[in-house]
Write a protein that binds this DNA or RNA. Structure first.
Lengths: 131, 131
DNA sequence: TTTGATGCAAATGTTTTGCATGCAA
DNA sequence: TTGCATGCAAAACATTTGCATCAAA
């Protein structure tokens, strides 16, 4: 199946590339409706799935009940704030050595990992201190 | 709100304590129906939520579209097989130092993390090699 | 008795899918 | 023209919730 150009898909890609929060499908849908008033959720989901499958975007499971999407497809780590539930990218050194630690007592073959950090974000820390 | 005893809840707890796979709510429901033919999914979910809230069991998000539950409530790591999607417990040294690495360039406060390893499990490796 | 727990069914919220039509190549 | 992509609506799915009834304390 050869991909065919579509303005909608292009806009979704650009929208994700232009931000570093991690919007849900519904947020993306709302944003896209301002450009294409008749765009459907089906189109949103189809394109997000398509882009994620091609590795152009990342699909994140953050333990919420919904997926989030990340325009930065390079492997990296995420942080979710316990207070506001906002998801942030983390800039950090590689921790790939944890694969070796995990494999030490394991009889299968560990190829990779995902990790999600949690705590309190800068914004929420500040709010707390200014009370 | 003071908890009141219920046979159903007790059975769910025991069922989870007796296994180290990580069943979904639906799997637990099916198993419980053999003991209580009229038990409802609502009761399953209510009790799983209750037990997870009390910290007696763990609720896992493995990137599937459904939750899994773990009778082992002590913090530990999981592995999901790329091939059969089975989830295993990992016995491994602490990797809590990754919180410090993650916090190095982060202005918020990192309190913890979850990590999920993936690759090929022993069973699937063996199947592959015996072809 | 009081109040939390249950079974049942309906509702919710997210994501997927079928189908006729539209549009890229 | 061909066939992938779209919009629309319905369906699928896991999970939650309202309510009358049941049972623990």
């Amino acid at each position: 199946m050869i991909a065919k150009y579509s303005r909608q898909r292009e806009s979704i890609k650009q929208y994700l590339d232009g931000r570093n929060d991690h919007p849900t499908a519904d947020t993306i849908y709302t944003a896209m409706r301002e450009i294409y008033p008749n765009i459907s959720l089906g189109t949103i989901y189809r394109n997000l799935g398509f882009l994620a499958e091609r590795g152009e975007i990342l699909k994140l499971s953050c333990g919420d009940n919904f997926d989030r999407f990340d325009g930065n497809s390079k492997p990296h780590y995420h942080f979710i704030c316990n207070t506001c539930n906002q998801v942030y990218d983390l800039k950090m050194e590689s921790i790939d050595h944890i694969n070796i630690i995990a494999n030490a007592n394991f009889k299968g073959n560990i190829q990779g990992h995902t990790a999600l950090f949690h705590g309190i974000c800068e914004n929420c820390l500040n709010k707390k201190n200014n009370l």
